Computed example of a mutant assay.
Amino acid sequence: MEAGPDKEYSRKIIHIDMDAFFASVEQRDNPELRGKPVAVGGGSERGVVAAASYEARRYGVRSAMSSRIAKRKCPHLIFVKHRFEVYKYVSGQIREIFAEYTPLIEPLSLDEAYLDVTENLKGMRSATHIAQEIKYKIKKATSLTASAGVSYNKFLAKLASDHRKPDGLFVVKPGEGEAFVANLPVEQFHGIGRVTAERMHQLGIRTGLDLRAQTEDFLRKHFGKAGGHYYKISRGQDDRPVEPDRVRKSVGSENTFERDLETLAEMQLGLAPLIDDVWKWCERTRIFGRTVTVKIKLNDFQNLTRSRSSLLPIKDYAFIEQMAYDLLEENFPTPRPVRLLGVSISNLEDTQPYEGKQLTLNF
């Protein structure tokens, strides 16, 4: 059963997305980089761009692009080494500003989050005014700009924050969602990636209006369970709540090597710091997992993965280390040389005692 109009429009959701966050922090802290095309990460022939400034994006440079392609698109691109501790600190500053308005904060990454401000700590009636205040406070505290989307559900708020970037604020009011998505290309819909968009194009679906013209049965036939989701978002519908206590499902670390690895000894040496990274996170957070996974990417970009699980959370470094090395050896000899290794732990459990608190808001 679909929600009625009153229920559907009862929420006030804000999506905040920092503008070119990593690159903007680097330009803020180094005046010589301002106004220039900057890529965070990469640099080496085998590297990958973690983030790109807007100046670099004008040349087609994007995150997750190989350094080689990025340099080809923008020959005068400036690569800078990432500083994740700085980005985490700034993200913490931004999170403190969010918390002034609502406890219902769902972080998606260091640089973006959903906020449910339907009932908020300042008693403000206008979500748009809250978004304006948050943007102002972020700029004042960090000297960085953020874009905000305001709407009655998460899907529309996310689309809205992308609509006027950078430093934008866009509002999709109750009743406007269906019209707002009608003319948007499907590849702009959050949750529809490049491959899915190409499949939709082959079916003659290029815009939100084209998507809305399809029956739910047709979409489920071609896209499985996701078809039901596509049916709803083509109508601007999304009933997902903001989830402030979203549990992290896994933690991992991986590395692309400067040269391909061929021997088991080289791979073990490459795996060691990745195991250390994951273990340090587990120790620091006191969150441990039951499943260890080793990822191996060959130089033809084929991925091999192996996992092994324990009945109880693994709280012994030596145990995790041995499991990871055993999983690596099970894949050796590899069909081709290895360009990337990764280690992750999933099925996480928080081992710290937790005292739940319920917040009551009276207006």
Rank of each mutant, 00 (worst) to 15 (best):
G60M: 01
L361R: 11
G191Q: 05
R235C: 13
E262H: 14
G177K: 11
R11H: 00
L203P: 08
P337S: 09
H201S: 09
Y54H: 07
I138E: 12
V292E: 00
Y101L: 03
A318S: 10
V38C: 11
G175Q: 07
V117Y: 01
F170C: 09
P185W: 08
I69M: 06
S67Q: 06
V242A: 14
L169I: 01
S143F: 06
V49Y: 14
N30H: 13
Y9A: 11
R339H: 03
I13R: 02
H190K: 09
T263R: 13
L348R: 09
I287K: 03
E198W: 13
P185Y: 01
P75W: 09
Q188E: 12
G35H: 01
L209C: 01
Y354H: 15
K71N: 03
R83F: 04
V86H: 11
H15Q: 12
S44V: 06
S24G: 07
I314Q: 12
D162C: 08
P37Y: 12
K158R: 15
L169T: 01
G149P: 15
I16M: 00
V338D: 04
S147C: 09
E178N: 07
Q214W: 09
D316Y: 15
T263A: 05
Q358F: 04
D326W: 00
F223I: 00
L33R: 13
K232G: 12
K139S: 04
F257P: 10
S10C: 03
A51R: 08
N183D: 12
R336E: 10
E330L: 03
E2D: 14
E32R: 11
I345P: 03
T285E: 04
A272L: 06
V48L: 10
